[in-house]
Write a protein that binds this DNA or RNA. Sequence first.
DNA 1: GGCTGTAGCCTAGGGTCTCTAGGTTTGCTC
DNA 2: GAGCAAACCTAGAGACCCTAGGCTACAGCC
Lengths: 203, 203
Amino acid sequence: MARAGITVDRLVAAAADLADEVGFDKVSLSALARSFGVRDASLYSHVRNLQELRTRIALLAGGEMIDRIAAAVAGRAGKEALTAFAGAYREYALAHPGRYAATQIRIDPVVFADTPAMRRTAEITYGMLRAYGLEEPDLTDAVRLLRSTFHGYCALEAAGGFAAPRDVRRSWDKAVDALHTALTHWPREAGHAPTGKEHESHA
Amino acid sequence: MARAGITVDRLVAAAADLADEVGFDKVSLSALARSFGVRDASLYSHVRNLQELRTRIALLAGGEMIDRIAAAVAGRAGKEALTAFAGAYREYALAHPGRYAATQIRIDPVVFADTPAMRRTAEITYGMLRAYGLEEPDLTDAVRLLRSTFHGYCALEAAGGFAAPRDVRRSWDKAVDALHTALTHWPREAGHAPTGKEHESHA
DNA sequence: GGCTGTAGCCTAGGGTCTCTAGGTTTGCTC
DNA sequence: GAGCAAACCTAGAGACCCTAGGCTACAGCC
């Protein structure tokens, strides 16, 4: 019998596609094995268990996402950069709901410490916010605000949480506008010298 | 053999507690039955299936949550109301992670149309924002922004997404501050008469 | 072309979970 | 005590995760 020719990369790619189709939490090794015409037990020679598969999807998606964001932000600054960042973020989250959901799982920091994608994400985000003249600890606070709003919005939108007869895209633009306003009028922390090394990928 | 005396309400309450302990997605009818000293099949006379149980947990949690928020907001307005709302929201989400997760699931609008809790949530939220002088469609946009940020922040915090050595509570206060700033400097929609009836519970 | 190691795949099976079908018991009401 | 509905049961199918151990296709080497 001809072999399926499975590798870890092909497996993870197929799993990511499956996640986008049926939802991240519904990705099963059984279904994945079926799609390759193979028994589920056979996959355990490529992947340790379901959790590792999920982690790998998350890392794949995280890399893809920051690539798109980096491309969108490149060469821009200030509000333009913020808008580009936000647009790329939401676009990816909506186009790849399964992959996006994967990026939100808790990854064991021992197994996979900080990946290049994480470091790049931190660099781009913090860099973007420094254009607003922010320094620590306001920088970290602002990063947390942005991440929260972006993630919350996409999560709610993907879950069908916005039912009002108001264009979701317009609300998004307005939210980004509002964030820009908040960043420009940021309530500074008084009397705190910046250390310049306080930020990390998962602010 | 003595009976366990199970009712739907006791079942849902126990399920909600279980959700807070082990996580909403790990609540199983098997485990629930075990905790009552009963076979899993026996629960199907009280609850149609797992999905219905989850929906009931969500409705329970939604009601509890808006009760806390309403109590916190009562008698306040403007920034005070916003801070109280945000505080009650985050407190509930962190104290009851399983119940909070339940509130985020998609509920079939056909089966459970709009509950009193939903209507109350809408009233309180929109009422709070009207103090900022906002009218439709800005009102809905602002509601979406608040919901997104609150949810995103709590979701990320609960998932351990904030790893920086910066106090999470302080960042939260700063985020609420920033939202207040954004609301007071809201970029108004030009030339749009308010209809006064455009909002709904899930903005 | 044969030899060998290994990666890729297999069967068998145990455990958890959801859910259905149909039977029994408990305890309340008349 | 009879009737009855609610509460609980066993049995079993099907999906899934994962382990243990066995077979085989294929690449590299003589």
